[in-house]
Simulated assay, not measured.
Amino acid sequence: MKRALITGGSGFIGSHLIEALLDEGGWEVTCLDNWDPFYDSSIKESNMEKALKHENFRFVKGDLLQLDQIGSELDAPYDVIVHLAAKAGVRPSIEDPVGYYRTNVEGTQRLLEWARTRGVPQFVFGSSSSVYGVNPNVPWREDDDVLNPISPYASTKVSGELLGHVYSSLYNIRFVALRFFTVYGPRQRPDLAIHKFTRCLFEGRPIPKFGNGETRRDYTYIEDIVSGIRHAMDYDQSLYEVINLGNNDSVTLNELIRTLEEACGKKALIEQHDHQLGDVPQTYADIGKASRLLHYAPRTNIKDGIAKFVEWYVEKHGVVNYAP
């Protein structure tokens, strides 16, 4: 049996990854999560329902900033750590930059040090496309040295990648940073656009639209992201890599709203707002490196992915009179 520690495993991406590992077999999985109140903890509890019934799963509630106190509860050694725990969100980070720094940078530092002292050989880090900031050179490539983060959240992810380089260089921990591009799908956080817009459509409330709707995002379906993480857990070549995980496509906000309207069978009411501070005009991933190193090949386009999300939402929330 291989052994994995997944931080932030009660969240959207982590819970899908944990279920994939348990379904695969041959894994003992520990989840470390503090159930940050950024959104309702009952959602995270629901995300864990299936995993908690599995004999090879263990849940530890605790904070990365208190690893000294809770470290004994973690059943080291592990073959790999997948570090997904973080304070999330670009806009909230502008209001709480110090809190984001402590959790995302200091927390990552503490976890890397914990991994070093316990001989964990592989560390997969959940980074973000936000590190590219306002960069007109699309699609974005990992070898583009011009990073222009424009939010505290983005800067913490750059810091995490650099901390990984230090530990890789000094202590031979293999560190793979995965830059996620706008992940969506069943269990997506309720504050994110696709989830929020779907809720507004079914409840007959207006969708908040910031700017003219021509901002673009590379939306990436959760199953494709999990596939990329899973291959990164097995990656055994170089000691340090930064890799994009996106869909190699860029969709405007207006296109996204039209796709959601079609999937939900509803016409959107629009509540217009000015462009928001910290939002980048576009994201667009070059995934050539992920293809070469991780055999990464996203399979879900935006139309099919939105349809799957809406089907999950309808079932989860008991929506009636659903007629796409």
Rank of each mutant, 00 (worst) to 15 (best):
T283H: 02
I270Y: 12
G107N: 10
P206C: 11
V176K: 01
L65I: 08
G246Y: 01
Q66H: 12
D249M: 10
D191K: 13
V131D: 03
A86H: 04
V98P: 01
V105A: 10
P149N: 11
F38E: 06
L111D: 06
L170D: 04
F59I: 03
Y235Q: 06
A307H: 13
I94S: 08
S41C: 08
N172Q: 15
G119W: 02
L17F: 15
Y284I: 02
I306W: 02
G164Y: 00
E19M: 10
P208D: 14
V320W: 03
G305S: 07
E95T: 11
F125K: 01
G246C: 00
L192A: 11
G133K: 00
F175Y: 03
E113P: 05
V314E: 02
K61V: 12
N148Q: 15
V80W: 01
T30A: 13
E45S: 14
I306C: 11
A4V: 08
A307K: 14
Y322G: 04
G204L: 02
R199P: 02
H54E: 14
C200V: 04
A85V: 07
E106N: 15
A193Y: 03
F181K: 01
V90Q: 00
M1L: 12
E315C: 08
N212A: 13
Y184Q: 00
G211Q: 09
S10V: 08
K316F: 06
S93K: 02
I302D: 02
L147A: 07
W114N: 05
E311Q: 12
